[in-house]
Design a protein around this nucleic acid. Sequence first.
DNA 1: CAATAATGTTAGGCTAAACAAACTTTTAAG
DNA 2: CTTAAAAGTTTGTTTAGCCTAACATTATTG
Lengths: 129, 129
Amino acid sequence: MHPELSASIEDYLEAILVLSEAHGAVRVTDIAKKLDVAKPSVTAAVNTLKEMGLVTQERYGKVYLTPSGREHAVRIKRRHNALRAFLTEVLGVSEDVADKDACLMEHAISPETMEKLLLFLEKTLPSNK
Amino acid sequence: MHPELSASIEDYLEAILVLSEAHGAVRVTDIAKKLDVAKPSVTAAVNTLKEMGLVTQERYGKVYLTPSGREHAVRIKRRHNALRAFLTEVLGVSEDVADKDACLMEHAISPETMEKLLLFLEKTLPSNK
DNA sequence: CAATAATGTTAGGCTAAACAAACTTTTAAG
DNA sequence: CTTAAAAGTTTGTTTAGCCTAACATTATTG
């Protein structure tokens, strides 16, 4: 049923969410810049996301998350944030390295591990609501 | 100089180390079983590892780590073990999920994060020397 | 020691993901 | 409005990693 999102596709989806929070509509060029890939790579990824029903796009136009796409993206971003928080606030890893590592690790983490990590963070850093 | 090992190649290298500890010599078939891939995939990976000077192999024969290959493999396995220990002993993730997650995350972790994780584990679990 | 089983390799093909170059469409300026 | 720049797409390659089927080599065993 759910073809499982690849790490690459998850990165695109997350980038689209972040950019949409900053700018509203999301342009192919901005996604390319954010992920440091060429525009045709974005076009290809967006087409895949369209087929999966996770984004919509008018021809030659802006990209928008569908409700389902937003749900997925939010889940991915939560993983990213939890990992980054753990790396910076618990381990004391520097911001930029933490963000890079989180971005790579976020695709690997299972639901069980995610759940346990959130519990751990709540317990350890009650400051974060 | 160092072409950077891909996640896939790191998995092969680690598997070869683990199998060599258990059986001495390492057979293509055993690598295939361990990683759940077809034998030709192993042949291809082993060829890549040979080109990189990380393993040796006699035609149609066993695979051996070179000193450099062993070094790399040990470093990879250390990452894996540290991650698994963190997942099981700190977060309380179940053994098999922890192992699977560790196997995927181990390729993403930077030297800085690795170092900080080891410090954290020492502090938290002094039992493990 | 021959025949068969197990092991390893080659050949050929597929998919995902990236790129550059060239093209189309939209936007913005004059 | 027309044209130049910017944005987006198409086309055609490339690379890594995997697969199956067929073939070659080595090991086993009757």
